[in-house]
Computed example of a mutant assay.
Amino acid sequence: MAQKLSLNLPSADDLFSSQEEREDAQREKVVDLPISEIDDFPDHPYPVEMDEEMQNTVESVKAYGVHTPALVRPKEDGRYEMVSGHRRKMASTLAGLDTMPCIVRQMSHDEATIIMVDSNLQREKIPPSSKAKAYKMKLEAMKRQGQRTDLTSTPLEQKLDRKYSVEIVGEKSGDSREQVRRYIRLTELIPEILKMVDTGKIAMRPAVELSYLPAEQQKSLLDTMEAEDCTPSHAQSIKLRQFSQEGRLDENVVLSIMQEEKPNQKEQFKIPREKISRFFAPGTPTQKIEDTIIKALELWKQRERNRDTR
Rank of each mutant, 00 (worst) to 15 (best):
C102L: 00
G174L: 02
D39L: 09
S119L: 07
E167M: 04
E260Y: 09
Q145P: 14
E37G: 05
I294V: 06
M225F: 02
L121F: 08
R303Q: 13
L186G: 15
D14W: 14
D43R: 08
G65D: 10
E21R: 08
Y46A: 07
I271Y: 04
I115K: 10
P45S: 08
E23G: 08
A235F: 04
C102R: 01
P214G: 09
R241V: 02
V61Y: 11
T152C: 06
R148N: 15
I289G: 14
A112D: 06
I193W: 05
A227M: 13
I114S: 08
N306L: 03
G78D: 05
R79Q: 11
P34T: 02
A63C: 15
L222R: 02
D32F: 00
D40V: 12
V169M: 05
F16D: 03
K131W: 10
D229F: 05
G174T: 01
S244V: 01
F280P: 15
V104N: 14
E49C: 08
A203Q: 07
S244N: 04
E209N: 12
D223K: 12
D13H: 06
P45N: 09
L151R: 14
D291P: 15
M137T: 15
Y212Q: 12
M54D: 01
I293Q: 11
E23V: 11
I38V: 00
L9P: 08
M90I: 12
T199S: 14
D32Q: 00
Q217H: 12
I293T: 14
Q265S: 13
S92M: 00
S6R: 03
Q218L: 02
V169T: 10
R273Y: 12
G78V: 00
E251W: 01
L297A: 14
G170N: 07
S108A: 03
R88S: 05
S130C: 03
K138N: 13
S277A: 10
S11Y: 15
